[in-house]
């Protein structure tokens, strides 16, 4: 199997010669998840070739001891329900990458489509390109770092957790959040309902410096801004009737 091509890909993906290779052309999503679990060994690297943007790759993995590399783009829900694995996508990801994850780390070298990290409860999602619309929607914990920009409705109804965006955002950023926090360097098309800009405090800056260093994303040139919920939608008040009527 070792050809000049393979060696080039391995180097580009940072794979060691000992990395185990699987071929996504040869197994369905069930079989792939099963094989990944079987092959998990301490410090192992498992490289999945030919992902070809297939859906449901690497679902429900919990092994914390190894890295799973997808050598190309993945389809919908890659790394969904991840509970501990480190997953690296050497390409782009379709909808809902890392949705419902509760632990581990997913790194997408390219960009992601809608709903990256939807409903996640823990773990870290790093996007080196752009995030699509609704990045971090309904998140309940964990961190999302995006080196590029995110699309509309990102951070929608974020309960907890942190979304850090080094580029800009589309409309409706951080609409109707609870205790989610968004940090953004670029411009947002508009802030969503009940989203409000607050000053960063020194603790935020410390936290973000650590985070970005770990995510291998450069500290932005401009200042970061913090977006949180004002909390006006948390309780009904008849004096806010006009807001409630229209949303």
């Amino acid at each position: 199997m070792v050809s000049a091509d393979n060696i080039a890909v391995d180097q580009w993906a940072g794979l060691s010669p000992e990395a185990v290779h699987l071929d996504a052309d040869e197994c369905d999503p069930y079989e792939l998840t099963h094989q990944l679990k079987e092959l998990a060994r301490d410090n192992a690297q498992i490289a999945v070739e030919n992902p070809r943007a297939r859906h449901n790759l690497g679902i429900g993995l919990e092994m914390e001891n190894c890295e799973v590399h997808f050598l190309g783009s993945v389809g919908y829900y890659c790394g969904g329900f991840n509970a501990g694995a480190k997953i690296i996508v050497h390409g782009n990801a379709g909808w809902g990458v890392g949705e419902a994850m509760s632990g581990g780390r997913i790194v997408v070298r390219g960009s992601t489509a809608w709903s990256a990290g939807a409903g996640m409860r823990g773990g870290t999602l790093v996007i080196h390109g752009d995030g699509g619309p609704r990045t971090g929607i309904a998140m309940k914990g964990g961190d999302i770092f995006v080196a590029g920009s995110v699309g509309f409705m990102s951070g929608f109804m974020a309960h907890k957790g942190k979304l850090v965006v080094l580029g800009g955002a589309g409309d409706g950023l951080g609409a109707s959040m609870y205790e989610g926090r968004i940090f953004i360097a670029g411009r947002a098309g508009s802030l969503g309902a009940d989203a409000i800009e607050r000053d960063l405090d020194p603790a935020d800056v410390e936290e973000l410096k650590r985070d970005l260093a770990l995510a291998e994303i450069a500290w932005p040139e401009g200042a970061l801004r913090k977006i949180e919920a004002e909390g006006r939608l948390w309780y009904f008040d008849k004096h806010d009737g006009r807001i409630w009527r229209s949303i």
Binding site: Y77, W95, G96, E99, W114, S115, A118, G119, R121, R134, I137, A138, K140, G141, F156, M157, H159, K160, Y178, E179, G231, L233, W234, Y235, F236
Partner: peptide
């Protein structure tokens, strides 16, 4: 994962389909 005692109004559309 909500602040205590808020009037919760949960989402109607699924977040990822």
């Amino acid at each position: 994962t909500l602040p205590k005692n808020i009037d919760q109004r949960s989402a109607v559309r699924h977040p990822d389909f």
